[in-house]
Design a protein around this nucleic acid. Sequence first.
DNA 1: ATATATTGTGCAACCGATTGCACTACGATT
DNA 2: AATCGTAGTGCAATCGGTTGCACAATATAT
Lengths: 341, 341
Amino acid sequence: MAKDKTTIYDIAKTLQVTPSTVSRALKDHPRISAKTKKAVKEMASQLNYQHNNVAAALRSGNTFILGIVLPKVNRTFFSSVIKGVEQLVSQANYRVMITQSHDNFKTEQANIQALINAQVDGIIASIAKETTRYEHYQRVIDQQIPLILFDRVMEISNASTVVIDDFLGAYEAVSHLIEQGCRRIVHFTGVQSLNIYKYRLRGYREALEDHGIAFDPALVIESDMQLEDGKQVMQQLLDDGVDLDAIFASSDHSAMGAMQVLKAQKIRIPEEIAIVGFADEPFTAFVEPGLSSVNQKSEMMGQIAAKIFLEQVQFSGGEYTPTKTVLKPELIIRASSLKRQ
Amino acid sequence: MAKDKTTIYDIAKTLQVTPSTVSRALKDHPRISAKTKKAVKEMASQLNYQHNNVAAALRSGNTFILGIVLPKVNRTFFSSVIKGVEQLVSQANYRVMITQSHDNFKTEQANIQALINAQVDGIIASIAKETTRYEHYQRVIDQQIPLILFDRVMEISNASTVVIDDFLGAYEAVSHLIEQGCRRIVHFTGVQSLNIYKYRLRGYREALEDHGIAFDPALVIESDMQLEDGKQVMQQLLDDGVDLDAIFASSDHSAMGAMQVLKAQKIRIPEEIAIVGFADEPFTAFVEPGLSSVNQKSEMMGQIAAKIFLEQVQFSGGEYTPTKTVLKPELIIRASSLKRQ
DNA sequence: ATATATTGTGCAACCGATTGCACTACGATT
DNA sequence: AATCGTAGTGCAATCGGTTGCACAATATAT
């Protein structure tokens, strides 16, 4: 029946001590006697006291909230990153505030601003597809808030980054296709303002050239990389009669779209056209044939981002030097690209 | 180069006015002259002023944060609900703080507690599988924080609820299977402490009986409803030589697991065994054959939950009467359950 | 027994915005 | 000319913990 919220003043009054003592007792301050602590804690639970983080944050300057900005939470990659982040920061009593940009620039800006206003102790972000400017991220830095970018990153001074080696992931995927005997490999790529798509394209190109296959710009198709885009692009390729024997898609969803079109046309996968996606979404294992893909070490990415945050926030002296981490991706080979056993 | 954060005091000082005026000017208080407002706003942006929500929240009592507690964000159902919630509350300037219980009771408790401590203005939650007690939710009510439960709900006085008619969803799914000629329909169900599984089981049973088919408890199998569980259960059914011609699974993942086992065994779907899942996850459309499923109106559920929250929070007078909303699910029929055209 | 640590608690300022109330000035009303 | 209304701003308390510093009491060292 706790109608009015109880404060440390209420506890202090009934116990005939000062609020400072109550505050310290609740936080297990070493200078408070065991007896007082016990009394305070008992009274606190008796009065149904709930610690007010807002008041504490105002005075202490720490909200113990870590802000996260990413395109969409329902993408397995991003939700795994969140999981990794949560695992680490929760041990340090931080809470996570997740926001989605839905790949929209304005929304991303608004989210960042909201997190700044909320006085979060740090921000971990992966930038939206539409984003090409970064004043909002600069503002984070200006406010001395630790900023860690992952996967989709930008060059922002004083921001740390965690990425996988997209070049390598693509290089290995394409090399694998070449080893399977493919020669006319189409590449589905995304908006080139994002580092990830740019580097994967480079990996694709270099793998081809290293294997003596000429790079053909006509085989590189840029789209929004969703399921529908994959379908459309694939249909267009077929309609145009483009000669191809494999697809390396920079997203599993677009690969899936292509796969659906091919299956509808009774074109055999991987015999006629082999496919490799990117992200290793769980559904890649469900579909028929299983979709080969590049695993991005999402959970580890989150853990590392979180670790950097914790280090930076616990780092008191002087200027913190941002770090750049590059993880090694892993090619997962499934039936969609396996021509021979 | 804004090293020290600027406050309304800084603005006040340079403009030779009081902080009260600055505060009002920034919020477009009607009593402040247009000239002053303009001057204040210009100075604010010049000094790179960032509104401190924490201070405002302490004084005003509103954090403008809505807490969300759900099992996992990477389930399409839940992320769609989030989307629905965000759409509505963002218009009212609320922000959302998402937490995941991972279906774990302790984590759920901790999350709720953290949200209470963060002084959120309301909580929207869907309970974890493990949860059977609800003191933590009671605490939310005790603190006068609006509480809205969705999908997986419990009877908590003064909490509003938003659910779909799980009974009906199951009833229609099973009726559909019966119409397709199925008679020995296995039901995959989950932990019975959750309303959703309980009601779906009832719908299953009633549909059978209404069509003159005896309910056979041996055909109802309880599991954790993940992909692996579906596989195991299916394998067990085959090993046991259970006679069945259809499966109605209370989750798409378990249905998918069963599907994988059946396909591996070259058992034809839907000819030999028809399947219907529940949740209408996107992958149900990807797989072969397409998995029939029951759509839960997730986005609408989120919107309604948000609407209730906003109404309750804007409701000033007296006691708020909690509402119970029941949405109508929609059976999506795909190839996995379609024996005849 | 005296000097020095150590323990346990209180005092009071503070974090930064909000807001009810008071007050001035000036135009409108009668 | 006196009264009233209203626009525009200031005053000061407040939200609820936190924390540096002070200080008394007790413990330890010399």
